[in-house]
Write a protein that binds this DNA or RNA. Structure first.
Length: 519
RNA sequence: GAGCCCGUAGCUCAGCCGGCUAGAGCACUUGACUUUUAAUCAAGGGGUCCUGGGUUCGAGUCCCAGCGGGCUCACCA
């Protein structure tokens, strides 16, 4: 490995520290008594007399220094933010030996090193709250030069670390130097905890179901396939957990939810990562009408908790998450945006309508798929404010209950925001014979060439035969909801480690890497 | 999968129509400076110009192939 000049220098500094008897990676715990933000926000020096933080210990990364001879200013960044340090030579080196200041601090410490300081807070002549350092200790040496991002008084950023490839591959660097990036992930975490709070508060149970499944079901998507060596069977990474959660409802849990990773072996783009996080919830004795009310409360609550508001700006558009949301049937929505009533049309009429509207179709598309195409092409983009689209054609929804009064439809809704689906829910199909029939229809679609059609799951059918109470279920894409609430336009910006092609030389050659039995 | 764009110092970028030893700011090194803040001042070091071919007297620049990334579209929740 070729080291750059700066990397070599840091390794030399490391060596010199060791020669001076300073352990660059000491083992002891550090007793931190204050955080940067806490001091910045809470420091009180009314009347010119410092009132608090007069004996504090902080730890963090050294992010910059301005040396002025026998005194220096430096930036310390901890988990909460940044604070300035004031380091005077004769303060940290009270005796004759000025090595700690002259050599260790000025020469051997580098930007990015973790240090611990002890001292007191004061306000400089320029008005900046600062820690006057009395003791300084190296906690961990950094061997790689960190990009130095500078900001001036107007907040202009210079030399930002912006290359998406490097930011995603070295997210640790991105998080260290780009505070706004950290903010997005804090919000993501808040979103998930708010959602948990909301569900737990209603007495629903968080559960975990298998990610490795012998039959991939519950959604229309292509799976990742793997192999279990002991069982000697192929397994699939789950594309959905719906069928397992329903088994739990069969077993008597009346409200269950799971927040977890799903895996889909499909294309990647701005809104798709091969693994993503979904929240699914099933509540017994409820229907999709009830669920629409619940989702309004949930989304409004989450938006409030994450952003502090129910109105959120996305791509320059103000989106209001306060309920109730507009409810529009799929047929009415298509009529509204195309002027055509498709409620009575059969497959061939729909196919010719698609051609008329300039939508590409092929023979593998059934009635449901054709309607979905029209909707996706002509309606979706108009649904900016939160809108429920309800009552979908039965052909495209094999796991939802038939509509109580509208033949040919199922009790399903999707929530659209800014032209994108963010939630999907049904009155769940609990008629085992109907369910068997629908899955058999899926098999026929598969034979027609639709390789995303669902597979038969006999154990799931058996569970329904034991009896599942009337139940409503909901799925929400956590990544996409996070994007909406943080005004991010790429899924990569809300995933710590989005999937990337491996860098050359960063992994073993495929032959060596290939484990026995995997494919 | 297709089209377009990008890849030059640790970071952000310039480098014209192919032509001197490949540049700038920050970062880094040396020196000065005890309340600075994009600290300042002086001097200095640092390059696999993504990789491999080709054209040419001469390639960072032009051509071909590949690798990686971004955007758009397609596919897809």
């Amino acid at each position: 490995m070729q080291l750059s000049e700066q990397e070599l220098l840091r390794r030399e500094n490391l060596q010199k520290l060791r020669e001076m008897g300073i352990d660059p990676y000491p083992a002891e715990a550090v007793e931190v008594t204050a955080y940067a933000r806490e001091v910045q926000e809470g420091f009180n020096d009314e009347g010119g007399e410092p009132q608090n933080f007069q004996q504090v210990r902080l730890a963090g990364r050294l992010m910059g220094s301005r040396v002025m001879g026998k005194a220096s200013f430096a930036e310390l960044q901890d988990g909460s933010g940044r604070i300035q340090l004031y380091i005077a030579r004769d303060e940290i080196c009270p005796g004759e030996d000025k090595e700690l200041y002259n050599t260790v601090f000025k020469k051997l410490l580098d930007i990015g090193d973790f240090i611990g300081v002890e001292g007191f807070a004061f306000r400089t002549r320029m008005g900046e709250i600062t820690i006057h350092v009395r003791e300084l200790k190296l906690l961990s040496k950094s061997l790689h030069p960190l990009p130095v991002v500078k900001r001036d008084e107007e907040g202009n950023v210079y030399d930002a670390f912006t290359d998406p490839e490097q930011r995603y591959r070295q997210r640790y660097v991105d998080l260290t130097v780009n505070p706004h990036v950290k903010e997005i992930f804090l919000k993501r975490s808040k979103l998930i905890s708010a959602m948990r709070r909301f569900f737990d508060g209603r007495g629903w149970l968080e559960v975990e179901t298998p990610a490795l499944q012998p039959v991939h079901g519950g959604a229309a998507a292509r799976p990742f396939k793997t192999f279990h060596n002991t069982l000697e069977i192929p397994l699939y990474l789950r594309i959905a957990n719906e069928l397992y959660l329903k088994r739990l409802v069969v077993g008597g849990f009346e409200g269950v939810y799971e927040i977890g990773k799903m895996f889909r072996n499909e294309g990647m783009d701005r809104t798709h990562n091969p693994e993503f996080t979904s929240m699914e919830i099933y509540v017994a004795y409820k229907d999709y009408n009830w669920m629409m009310g619940m989702v309004e409360q949930l989304v409004e609550y989450v938006a409030q908790e994450v952003t502090g508001h129910t109105k959120v700006e996305y791509e320059g558009k103000m989106i209001d998450f306060a309920g109730p949301y507009r409810r529009l049937s799929m047929y009415d929505a298509i009529q509204e945006y195309t002027g055509t009533d498709i409620s009575g049309m059969d497959e061939s009429a729909l196919r010719s309508l698609c051609r008329q509207l300039g939508i590409a179709v092929d023979d593998s598309m059934g009635k449901g798929k054709l309607i979905d195409e029209i909707f996706g092409e002509k309606v979706e983009e108009h649904l900016i404010q939160p809108t429920y689209i309800i009552d979908y054609p039965i052909e495209m929804t094999p796991l939802a209950k038939k509509h109580r009064s509208k033949p040919g439809l199922v009790e399903r809704f999707e929530l659209f925001v800014n032209g994108k689906e963010i939630a999907n829910a049904y009155s769940e199909l609990n008629d085992p014979l109907d369910q068997r029939q629908r899955l058999e229809d899926q098999l026929r679609l598969a034979e027609r060439g639709d390789f995303e059609a669902m597979a038969m799951d006999e154990d799931f059918l058996r569970s329904l035969e034991y009896g599942m109470p009337p139940t409503s279920g909901l799925g929400i894409g956590i990544d996409r909801l996070t994007m909406l609430l943080t005004d991010q336009h790429s899924i990569q910006e809300v995933l710590f480690f989005p999937q990337m092609r491996p860098q050359r030389g960063s992994i073993y050659e495929p032959e060596k890497k290939q484990e026995e039995g995997s494919e």
